[in-house]
Design a protein around this nucleic acid. Structure first.
Lengths: 201, 201
DNA sequence: CCGGGTCCGGGACAAATGTCACGGGTGGCC
DNA sequence: GGCCACCCGTGACATTTGTCCCGGACCCGG
Protein backbone atom coordinates (compact mmCIF):
# COMPACT_ATOMS: atom_id res chain seq x y z
CA UNK A 1 0.00 0.00 0.00
CA UNK A 2 1.46 3.35 -1.05
CA UNK A 3 0.85 6.02 1.56
CA UNK A 4 0.21 9.36 -0.21
CA UNK A 5 0.09 12.96 0.94
CA UNK A 6 -1.81 15.35 -1.31
CA UNK A 7 -1.16 19.11 -1.29
CA UNK A 8 -3.34 21.20 -3.59
CA UNK A 9 -5.20 24.40 -2.89
CA UNK A 10 -8.17 24.14 -5.23
CA UNK A 11 -10.64 22.12 -3.21
CA UNK A 12 -12.40 20.67 -6.21
CA UNK A 13 -9.17 19.56 -7.84
CA UNK A 14 -7.94 18.11 -4.56
CA UNK A 15 -11.17 16.29 -3.94
CA UNK A 16 -11.28 14.91 -7.44
CA UNK A 17 -7.70 13.69 -7.29
CA UNK A 18 -8.27 12.16 -3.87
CA UNK A 19 -11.30 10.24 -5.03
CA UNK A 20 -9.55 9.18 -8.18
CA UNK A 21 -6.35 7.98 -6.58
CA UNK A 22 -8.33 6.38 -3.79
CA UNK A 23 -9.84 4.08 -6.39
CA UNK A 24 -6.44 2.55 -7.08
CA UNK A 25 -6.02 -0.59 -5.03
CA UNK A 26 -2.42 0.05 -4.06
CA UNK A 27 -2.77 3.71 -3.08
CA UNK A 28 -4.01 5.12 0.18
CA UNK A 29 -4.37 8.84 0.79
CA UNK A 30 -3.22 9.47 4.32
CA UNK A 31 -3.36 13.27 4.29
CA UNK A 32 -4.81 16.17 2.32
CA UNK A 33 -3.67 19.75 2.81
CA UNK A 34 -4.51 23.04 1.12
CA UNK A 35 -1.76 25.19 2.61
CA UNK A 36 1.97 25.07 2.07
CA UNK A 37 2.68 25.53 5.76
CA UNK A 38 0.80 22.37 6.64
CA UNK A 39 2.80 20.08 4.37
CA UNK A 40 5.77 19.28 6.60
CA UNK A 41 3.83 18.91 9.89
CA UNK A 42 1.24 16.67 8.26
CA UNK A 43 3.94 14.59 6.63
CA UNK A 44 5.78 14.12 9.91
CA UNK A 45 2.52 13.06 11.47
CA UNK A 46 1.30 10.67 8.80
CA UNK A 47 4.59 9.43 7.32
CA UNK A 48 3.63 9.13 3.66
CA UNK A 49 5.73 7.29 1.09
CA UNK A 50 5.06 9.88 -1.58
CA UNK A 51 4.08 13.56 -1.37
CA UNK A 52 2.18 14.98 -4.34
CA UNK A 53 2.70 18.75 -4.17
CA UNK A 54 1.31 21.70 -6.06
CA UNK A 55 3.70 24.67 -6.33
CA UNK A 56 1.44 27.70 -6.04
CA UNK A 57 -0.16 27.42 -2.64
CA UNK A 58 -1.22 29.72 0.15
CA UNK A 59 1.54 29.84 2.74
CA UNK A 60 4.92 28.60 1.63
CA UNK A 61 5.56 27.38 -1.87
CA UNK A 62 5.44 23.69 -2.63
CA UNK A 63 9.06 23.93 -3.76
CA UNK A 64 10.21 25.26 -0.41
CA UNK A 65 8.24 22.61 1.40
CA UNK A 66 9.75 19.95 -0.86
CA UNK A 67 13.30 20.86 0.12
CA UNK A 68 12.37 20.74 3.80
CA UNK A 69 10.58 17.46 3.41
CA UNK A 70 13.50 15.79 1.66
CA UNK A 71 15.84 16.93 4.41
CA UNK A 72 13.63 15.76 7.23
CA UNK A 73 12.11 12.66 5.69
CA UNK A 74 14.53 11.20 3.16
CA UNK A 75 12.33 8.17 2.76
CA UNK A 76 9.45 10.24 1.40
CA UNK A 77 9.59 10.82 -2.35
CA UNK A 78 8.35 14.14 -3.71
CA UNK A 79 6.30 14.47 -6.87
CA UNK A 80 5.54 18.00 -8.06
CA UNK A 81 2.23 18.60 -9.83
CA UNK A 82 1.77 22.07 -11.23
CA UNK A 83 -0.27 24.09 -13.69
CA UNK A 84 2.72 25.77 -15.27
CA UNK A 85 5.62 23.99 -16.89
CA UNK A 86 8.01 26.85 -16.32
CA UNK A 87 11.64 25.90 -16.92
CA UNK A 88 12.77 27.54 -13.69
CA UNK A 89 10.21 25.59 -11.68
CA UNK A 90 11.53 22.31 -12.97
CA UNK A 91 15.08 23.34 -12.20
CA UNK A 92 14.19 24.42 -8.70
CA UNK A 93 12.19 21.25 -8.14
CA UNK A 94 15.19 19.13 -9.02
CA UNK A 95 17.44 21.19 -6.76
CA UNK A 96 14.92 20.72 -3.97
CA UNK A 97 15.25 16.98 -4.36
CA UNK A 98 11.99 16.18 -6.12
CA UNK A 99 11.78 12.86 -7.92
CA UNK A 100 9.20 13.85 -10.46
CA UNK A 101 7.57 16.82 -12.14
CA UNK A 102 4.15 16.64 -13.80
CA UNK A 103 2.01 19.33 -15.38
CA UNK A 104 -1.74 19.41 -14.87
CA UNK A 105 -2.19 19.55 -18.59
CA UNK A 106 -1.20 15.91 -18.96
CA UNK A 107 -3.63 12.98 -18.92
CA UNK A 108 -4.89 11.72 -15.55
CA UNK A 109 -3.73 8.20 -16.25
CA UNK A 110 -0.14 9.39 -15.97
CA UNK A 111 -0.65 10.26 -12.36
CA UNK A 112 -1.01 6.90 -10.68
CA UNK A 113 1.69 5.48 -12.93
CA UNK A 114 4.04 8.32 -12.01
CA UNK A 115 3.45 7.76 -8.31
CA UNK A 116 4.42 4.12 -8.63
CA UNK A 117 7.49 4.88 -10.72
CA UNK A 118 8.66 7.54 -8.29
CA UNK A 119 8.32 5.14 -5.39
CA UNK A 120 10.37 2.61 -7.34
CA UNK A 121 13.20 5.12 -7.44
CA UNK A 122 12.68 6.33 -11.00
CA UNK A 123 12.63 9.98 -11.99
CA UNK A 124 9.63 11.06 -14.01
CA UNK A 125 9.93 14.24 -16.02
CA UNK A 126 8.38 15.33 -19.27
CA UNK A 127 11.20 15.16 -21.86
CA UNK A 128 10.09 18.29 -23.71
CA UNK A 129 10.03 20.19 -20.44
CA UNK A 130 13.47 18.97 -19.49
CA UNK A 131 14.84 20.20 -22.81
CA UNK A 132 13.23 23.60 -22.31
CA UNK A 133 14.67 23.87 -18.82
CA UNK A 134 18.16 23.14 -20.07
CA UNK A 135 18.00 25.46 -23.03
CA UNK A 136 16.67 28.31 -20.91
CA UNK A 137 19.81 28.33 -18.79
CA UNK A 138 20.01 29.25 -15.13
CA UNK A 139 18.39 32.19 -13.43
CA UNK A 140 20.42 35.30 -14.33
CA UNK A 141 18.76 37.46 -11.70
CA UNK A 142 20.33 38.44 -8.42
CA UNK A 143 18.52 37.90 -5.14
CA UNK A 144 17.86 41.61 -4.76
CA UNK A 145 16.76 41.90 -8.37
CA UNK A 146 14.26 39.15 -7.73
CA UNK A 147 13.01 40.86 -4.57
CA UNK A 148 12.53 44.17 -6.32
CA UNK A 149 10.88 42.59 -9.33
CA UNK A 150 8.58 40.55 -7.12
CA UNK A 151 7.57 43.72 -5.31
CA UNK A 152 6.86 45.37 -8.66
CA UNK A 153 4.02 43.06 -9.63
CA UNK A 154 0.53 44.58 -9.75
CA UNK A 155 1.84 48.01 -10.62
CA UNK A 156 3.48 49.33 -7.50
CA UNK A 157 5.36 52.59 -7.92
CA UNK A 158 9.05 52.98 -7.21
CA UNK A 159 8.24 54.53 -3.85
CA UNK A 160 6.00 51.57 -2.94
CA UNK A 161 8.69 49.09 -3.85
CA UNK A 162 11.34 51.02 -1.97
CA UNK A 163 9.18 50.97 1.14
CA UNK A 164 8.40 47.29 0.79
CA UNK A 165 12.02 46.23 0.33
CA UNK A 166 13.56 48.87 2.62
CA UNK A 167 15.77 50.44 -0.02
CA UNK A 168 16.34 53.88 -1.46
CA UNK A 169 14.12 54.74 -4.43
CA UNK A 170 17.21 55.39 -6.50
CA UNK A 171 18.54 51.92 -5.73
CA UNK A 172 15.25 50.37 -6.63
CA UNK A 173 15.38 51.99 -10.02
CA UNK A 174 18.88 50.70 -10.56
CA UNK A 175 17.83 47.13 -9.77
CA UNK A 176 14.80 47.44 -11.97
CA UNK A 177 16.96 48.70 -14.79
CA UNK A 178 19.34 45.78 -14.30
CA UNK A 179 16.49 43.28 -14.32
CA UNK A 180 15.05 44.85 -17.45
CA UNK A 181 18.44 44.55 -19.10
CA UNK A 182 18.97 40.93 -18.10
CA UNK A 183 15.54 39.87 -19.26
CA UNK A 184 16.01 41.83 -22.49
CA UNK A 185 12.72 43.60 -22.08
CA UNK A 186 11.62 47.20 -22.37
CA UNK A 187 10.00 48.03 -19.05
CA UNK A 188 9.33 46.58 -15.63
CA UNK A 189 6.07 44.93 -16.57
CA UNK A 190 7.63 43.02 -19.43
CA UNK A 191 10.48 42.09 -17.11
CA UNK A 192 8.05 40.75 -14.50
CA UNK A 193 6.26 38.76 -17.16
CA UNK A 194 9.45 37.33 -18.58
CA UNK A 195 10.74 36.41 -15.13
CA UNK A 196 7.49 34.67 -14.24
CA UNK A 197 7.37 32.92 -17.56
CA UNK A 198 10.73 31.34 -16.86
CA UNK A 199 9.98 30.49 -13.26
CA UNK A 200 12.52 32.95 -11.87
CA UNK A 201 10.66 35.17 -9.48
CA UNK B 1 -29.92 9.74 -17.68
CA UNK B 2 -28.48 13.25 -17.72
CA UNK B 3 -26.46 13.94 -20.85
CA UNK B 4 -23.51 16.17 -19.98
CA UNK B 5 -21.01 18.18 -22.01
CA UNK B 6 -17.75 19.05 -20.25
CA UNK B 7 -15.58 21.98 -21.34
CA UNK B 8 -12.32 22.45 -19.44
CA UNK B 9 -8.84 23.08 -20.76
CA UNK B 10 -6.68 21.48 -18.11
CA UNK B 11 -6.58 17.88 -19.22
CA UNK B 12 -6.00 16.49 -15.76
CA UNK B 13 -8.90 18.42 -14.28
CA UNK B 14 -11.13 17.46 -17.17
CA UNK B 15 -10.20 13.83 -16.94
CA UNK B 16 -10.69 13.76 -13.21
CA UNK B 17 -14.11 15.41 -13.44
CA UNK B 18 -15.15 13.10 -16.25
CA UNK B 19 -14.22 10.00 -14.30
CA UNK B 20 -15.84 11.34 -11.19
CA UNK B 21 -19.13 12.35 -12.76
CA UNK B 22 -19.15 9.18 -14.81
CA UNK B 23 -19.43 7.28 -11.53
CA UNK B 24 -22.83 8.81 -10.86
CA UNK B 25 -25.54 6.47 -12.03
CA UNK B 26 -27.72 9.15 -13.56
CA UNK B 27 -25.03 11.09 -15.40
CA UNK B 28 -23.52 10.31 -18.78
CA UNK B 29 -20.74 12.39 -20.29
CA UNK B 30 -21.48 12.67 -23.96
CA UNK B 31 -18.72 15.11 -24.91
CA UNK B 32 -15.47 16.53 -23.61
CA UNK B 33 -13.83 19.58 -25.16
CA UNK B 34 -10.74 21.61 -24.32
CA UNK B 35 -11.33 24.56 -26.61
CA UNK B 36 -13.99 27.25 -26.47
CA UNK B 37 -14.59 27.09 -30.21
CA UNK B 38 -15.59 23.44 -30.02
CA UNK B 39 -18.33 23.92 -27.46
CA UNK B 40 -21.21 24.88 -29.71
CA UNK B 41 -20.48 22.42 -32.56
CA UNK B 42 -20.04 19.54 -30.13
CA UNK B 43 -23.22 20.48 -28.33
CA UNK B 44 -25.21 20.59 -31.54
CA UNK B 45 -23.83 17.20 -32.39
CA UNK B 46 -24.35 15.45 -29.09
CA UNK B 47 -27.37 17.32 -27.70
CA UNK B 48 -26.49 17.41 -24.02
CA UNK B 49 -28.98 18.32 -21.28
CA UNK B 50 -26.39 20.27 -19.34
CA UNK B 51 -23.16 21.97 -20.38
CA UNK B 52 -20.50 22.38 -17.70
CA UNK B 53 -18.24 25.19 -18.91
CA UNK B 54 -14.99 26.69 -17.72
CA UNK B 55 -14.56 30.39 -18.50
CA UNK B 56 -10.88 30.75 -19.31
CA UNK B 57 -10.35 28.55 -22.35
CA UNK B 58 -8.28 28.62 -25.49
CA UNK B 59 -10.42 29.95 -28.32
CA UNK B 60 -13.56 31.77 -27.29
CA UNK B 61 -14.47 32.33 -23.69
CA UNK B 62 -16.90 29.99 -21.99
CA UNK B 63 -19.16 32.98 -21.36
CA UNK B 64 -19.40 33.80 -25.06
CA UNK B 65 -20.07 30.19 -25.88
CA UNK B 66 -22.74 30.07 -23.18
CA UNK B 67 -24.71 32.90 -24.75
CA UNK B 68 -24.56 31.22 -28.13
CA UNK B 69 -25.54 27.89 -26.69
CA UNK B 70 -28.58 29.27 -24.91
CA UNK B 71 -29.74 30.93 -28.09
CA UNK B 72 -29.32 27.88 -30.27
CA UNK B 73 -30.25 25.15 -27.81
CA UNK B 74 -32.70 26.53 -25.26
CA UNK B 75 -33.19 23.07 -23.85
CA UNK B 76 -29.60 22.80 -22.76
CA UNK B 77 -28.85 24.26 -19.35
CA UNK B 78 -25.51 25.95 -18.77
CA UNK B 79 -23.49 25.58 -15.60
CA UNK B 80 -20.35 27.69 -15.29
CA UNK B 81 -17.40 26.26 -13.37
CA UNK B 82 -14.50 28.60 -12.89
CA UNK B 83 -11.36 29.17 -10.85
CA UNK B 84 -12.14 32.78 -10.12
CA UNK B 85 -15.25 34.04 -8.40
CA UNK B 86 -15.00 37.46 -9.96
CA UNK B 87 -18.16 39.52 -9.55
CA UNK B 88 -18.17 40.54 -13.21
CA UNK B 89 -17.95 36.94 -14.33
CA UNK B 90 -21.04 36.01 -12.38
CA UNK B 91 -22.90 38.98 -13.77
CA UNK B 92 -21.92 38.16 -17.32
CA UNK B 93 -22.76 34.51 -16.79
CA UNK B 94 -26.27 35.44 -15.72
CA UNK B 95 -26.66 37.78 -18.68
CA UNK B 96 -25.52 34.97 -20.96
CA UNK B 97 -28.33 32.82 -19.64
CA UNK B 98 -26.40 30.48 -17.38
CA UNK B 99 -28.38 28.59 -14.77
CA UNK B 100 -25.58 28.12 -12.32
CA UNK B 101 -22.16 29.38 -11.28
CA UNK B 102 -19.70 27.32 -9.28
CA UNK B 103 -16.12 28.02 -8.24
CA UNK B 104 -13.49 25.33 -8.33
CA UNK B 105 -12.67 26.09 -4.75
CA UNK B 106 -15.87 24.46 -3.57
CA UNK B 107 -16.20 20.81 -2.56
CA UNK B 108 -16.57 18.21 -5.31
CA UNK B 109 -19.75 16.85 -3.86
CA UNK B 110 -21.49 20.07 -4.82
CA UNK B 111 -20.93 19.36 -8.44
CA UNK B 112 -23.22 16.44 -9.15
CA UNK B 113 -25.85 17.97 -6.92
CA UNK B 114 -25.63 21.25 -8.80
CA UNK B 115 -26.02 19.49 -12.13
CA UNK B 116 -29.22 17.84 -11.00
CA UNK B 117 -30.61 21.03 -9.52
CA UNK B 118 -29.85 22.97 -12.68
CA UNK B 119 -31.60 20.39 -14.80
CA UNK B 120 -34.60 20.65 -12.51
CA UNK B 121 -34.84 24.34 -13.37
CA UNK B 122 -33.25 25.69 -10.22
CA UNK B 123 -30.54 28.32 -10.20
CA UNK B 124 -27.47 27.49 -8.21
CA UNK B 125 -25.20 30.32 -7.13
CA UNK B 126 -22.99 30.80 -4.13
CA UNK B 127 -24.84 33.35 -1.93
CA UNK B 128 -21.65 35.15 -0.86
CA UNK B 129 -20.65 35.51 -4.48
CA UNK B 130 -24.03 36.84 -5.46
CA UNK B 131 -23.77 39.48 -2.76
CA UNK B 132 -20.31 40.50 -3.93
CA UNK B 133 -21.53 40.77 -7.51
CA UNK B 134 -24.38 43.02 -6.53
CA UNK B 135 -22.32 45.24 -4.27
CA UNK B 136 -19.61 45.65 -6.91
CA UNK B 137 -22.02 47.29 -9.31
CA UNK B 138 -21.97 47.03 -13.08
CA UNK B 139 -18.97 47.39 -15.32
CA UNK B 140 -18.14 51.12 -15.53
CA UNK B 141 -15.76 50.73 -18.45
CA UNK B 142 -16.53 51.63 -22.01
CA UNK B 143 -15.97 49.15 -24.81
CA UNK B 144 -12.97 51.08 -26.06
CA UNK B 145 -11.60 51.46 -22.57
CA UNK B 146 -11.79 47.70 -22.19
CA UNK B 147 -10.04 47.18 -25.51
CA UNK B 148 -7.22 49.53 -24.65
CA UNK B 149 -6.84 48.10 -21.17
CA UNK B 150 -6.81 44.57 -22.53
CA UNK B 151 -4.08 45.55 -24.98
CA UNK B 152 -2.09 47.04 -22.12
CA UNK B 153 -1.55 43.77 -20.28
CA UNK B 154 1.99 42.42 -20.16
CA UNK B 155 3.55 45.85 -20.35
CA UNK B 156 2.94 47.09 -23.87
CA UNK B 157 3.90 50.71 -24.48
CA UNK B 158 1.45 53.33 -25.66
CA UNK B 159 2.78 52.97 -29.19
CA UNK B 160 2.25 49.18 -29.07
CA UNK B 161 -1.30 49.59 -27.85
CA UNK B 162 -2.06 52.24 -30.45
CA UNK B 163 -0.85 49.90 -33.20
CA UNK B 164 -2.81 46.95 -31.82
CA UNK B 165 -6.08 48.85 -31.50
CA UNK B 166 -5.61 51.10 -34.54
CA UNK B 167 -5.84 54.35 -32.67
CA UNK B 168 -3.73 57.45 -32.22
CA UNK B 169 -1.27 57.33 -29.33
CA UNK B 170 -2.89 60.44 -27.89
CA UNK B 171 -6.27 58.74 -27.87
CA UNK B 172 -4.86 55.66 -26.22
CA UNK B 173 -3.49 57.74 -23.41
CA UNK B 174 -6.81 59.43 -22.96
CA UNK B 175 -8.60 56.09 -22.67
CA UNK B 176 -5.99 54.77 -20.30
CA UNK B 177 -6.38 57.83 -18.17
CA UNK B 178 -10.14 57.37 -18.14
CA UNK B 179 -9.81 53.72 -17.16
CA UNK B 180 -7.38 54.58 -14.40
CA UNK B 181 -9.81 57.15 -13.11
CA UNK B 182 -12.81 54.85 -13.19
CA UNK B 183 -10.98 52.05 -11.43
CA UNK B 184 -9.63 54.54 -8.88
CA UNK B 185 -6.07 53.33 -9.39
CA UNK B 186 -2.76 55.07 -9.92
CA UNK B 187 -1.38 53.63 -13.14
CA UNK B 188 -2.26 51.33 -15.99
CA UNK B 189 -1.02 48.19 -14.30
CA UNK B 190 -3.14 48.71 -11.25
CA UNK B 191 -6.04 49.48 -13.54
CA UNK B 192 -5.54 46.23 -15.44
CA UNK B 193 -5.35 44.33 -12.18
CA UNK B 194 -8.47 45.96 -10.79
CA UNK B 195 -10.39 45.35 -14.00
CA UNK B 196 -9.40 41.70 -14.05
CA UNK B 197 -10.16 41.32 -10.37
CA UNK B 198 -13.72 42.43 -10.98
CA UNK B 199 -14.18 40.42 -14.14
CA UNK B 200 -14.43 43.45 -16.39
CA UNK B 201 -11.86 43.04 -19.12
C1' DC C 1 -33.85 70.71 -32.15
C1' DC C 2 -31.02 70.37 -28.16
C1' DG C 3 -28.68 67.83 -24.78
C1' DG C 4 -25.80 63.87 -23.41
C1' DG C 5 -23.15 60.07 -24.21
C1' DT C 6 -19.45 57.70 -26.67
C1' DC C 7 -15.99 57.97 -30.08
C1' DC C 8 -11.61 60.12 -31.86
C1' DG C 9 -7.96 63.26 -31.85
C1' DG C 10 -4.52 67.36 -30.41
C1' DG C 11 -1.56 70.11 -27.22
C1' DA C 12 0.66 71.25 -23.00
C1' DC C 13 2.34 70.14 -18.60
C1' DA C 14 3.94 67.63 -14.30
C1' DA C 15 5.29 63.34 -12.66
C1' DA C 16 7.11 58.81 -13.08
C1' DT C 17 10.21 55.81 -15.38
C1' DG C 18 14.46 54.02 -17.52
C1' DT C 19 19.43 54.84 -18.41
C1' DC C 20 24.00 56.02 -17.43
C1' DA C 21 28.05 57.31 -14.93
C1' DC C 22 29.83 57.45 -10.66
C1' DG C 23 30.91 56.68 -5.80
C1' DG C 24 31.81 53.35 -1.66
C1' DG C 25 31.19 48.96 0.92
C1' DT C 26 31.48 43.87 1.46
C1' DG C 27 32.98 39.16 0.61
C1' DG C 28 34.96 35.27 -2.09
C1' DC C 29 38.65 33.43 -5.00
C1' DC C 30 43.06 32.99 -7.25
C1' DG D 1 47.17 41.66 -2.64
C1' DG D 2 44.18 42.18 -6.95
C1' DC D 3 40.08 40.87 -9.21
C1' DC D 4 35.29 40.25 -9.41
C1' DA D 5 30.59 40.04 -8.12
C1' DC D 6 27.14 41.71 -5.53
C1' DC D 7 25.32 45.26 -2.46
C1' DC D 8 23.68 50.26 -1.75
C1' DG D 9 23.42 54.81 -2.82
C1' DT D 10 23.65 59.69 -5.64
C1' DG D 11 22.90 62.80 -9.47
C1' DA D 12 21.72 64.02 -14.14
C1' DC D 13 19.31 63.18 -18.27
C1' DA D 14 15.90 61.73 -22.00
C1' DT D 15 11.79 59.32 -22.51
C1' DT D 16 7.42 57.71 -21.17
C1' DT D 17 3.33 58.14 -18.73
C1' DG D 18 -0.70 60.31 -16.66
C1' DT D 19 -3.62 64.54 -16.47
C1' DC D 20 -6.21 68.25 -18.05
C1' DC D 21 -7.43 71.22 -21.36
C1' DC D 22 -9.50 71.72 -25.96
C1' DG D 23 -11.74 70.60 -30.37
C1' DG D 24 -15.13 67.81 -33.76
C1' DA D 25 -17.76 63.66 -35.10
C1' DC D 26 -21.65 60.56 -34.44
C1' DC D 27 -26.06 58.62 -32.53
C1' DC D 28 -29.95 58.40 -29.46
C1' DG D 29 -33.74 60.00 -26.54
C1' DG D 30 -36.43 63.76 -24.79
Amino acid sequence: MIRLLLAEDQKMMRGALALLLGLEEDIEIVAQVGDGDEIVPKALETEPDVALLDIELPGRSGLDAAADLRARMPGCQVLILTTFGRPGYLRRAMEAGASGFLVKDGPVEELAAAIRRVLAGERVIDPALAAAALSAGPNPLTQRERDVLAAAVDGATVADIAAKVHLSPATVRNYLSAAIGKTRTRNRMEAVRAARQNGWL
